[in-house]
Amino acid sequence: MTSHEPATDTLLLDVHDLRVAIPSDSGDVMAADGVSLQLRHGEVLGVVGETGSGKSVTCRALLGLRPTPQSTVSGTVAYPAHDVDDVLSLPPRRLRELWGRRVAMIPQNPMTSLNPVRRIGEQVAEAVSASGGPTGAAGAARVLELLHQVGLPAPETRLRDYPHQFSGGMLQRTVIAIAIAQKPDLIVADEPTTALDVLIQDQILALLLSLQRDLGTGLILVSHDLSVVSQVCDRVAVMYAGQIVELAETATLLESPRHPYTRALLGALPGAVPRDQELRVIPGSPPQLVGLGPTCRFAPRCELHEQACDTWPTSLRDVGPAHTSRCRRATAASLPSPTPRHQETQS
């Protein structure tokens, strides 16, 4: 292990009741609404959700970033291992100390996350030298080491290139080099492979996972693709309409989902359903994230919906060891199957 003490007992990240409100003409859009989660050192957490589920907004808030200057962010995002009680109330100077060294981000589109008019080497050097890191010859050596580490081919010559001379996979490798330059304890990767071809996606996931294991870094992998997340992550959080609806260890989540949304998502995956069966379709569409109450947000589309669901305020409840769900009808033993009446209305 490196200089980081893998203090397995302390939490790396502790998020409590995170809410992100984006003002709009029709009221505040609650992009994240009461998100709580914890991450241990060296753990890999997946965050899955469809478009508009709030997964990106949530992850950016972990770095103290808000979607627009007018947005309000409440709740706490603590990094207990670094004596940071709440990222959201840190002054900008302290935030800059945190970024890179404690928590780094890999944004979704590598094409737009690098400066197009500066050489690759300069941009990595900037990350290396930030917060008093090495400069000059030592800095240059570290840049090369990093580019080797992320598997960039021929880094000695390629570091003089500009971003437009790189392929998507090479750009993503560069962005990863920048993210690990200061040896952060946590990497937040927001859809890091979505823009890439399947073979390159495979390479980038292999790289992320091997770096995560070598460096002992915590990793939060945000993706719309449950297959990707299930391959890489220790635990998975499923988001719907700004909330985590289910959180469990990966195998548990796949084998015995305790939220109807998770179960429906699993049934909709082309690779997971036998060919002679129809794919599951979730009727309707997600709600507008304005003025929603405390009751279940999935209820209008849910195959298990009962009248009682419309008045019951949801919260993440324990339904098993390290397994929580927002569904009123989920129990530790099971999630009920839909009654025939429901199945009819679903088709």
Partner: peptide, 16 residues
Amino acid sequence: NAAPALGRSRSTSSAV
């Protein structure tokens, strides 16, 4: 091999 399969824990090596 590279196509992500549900629940198949992946290795740190890539298909190609």
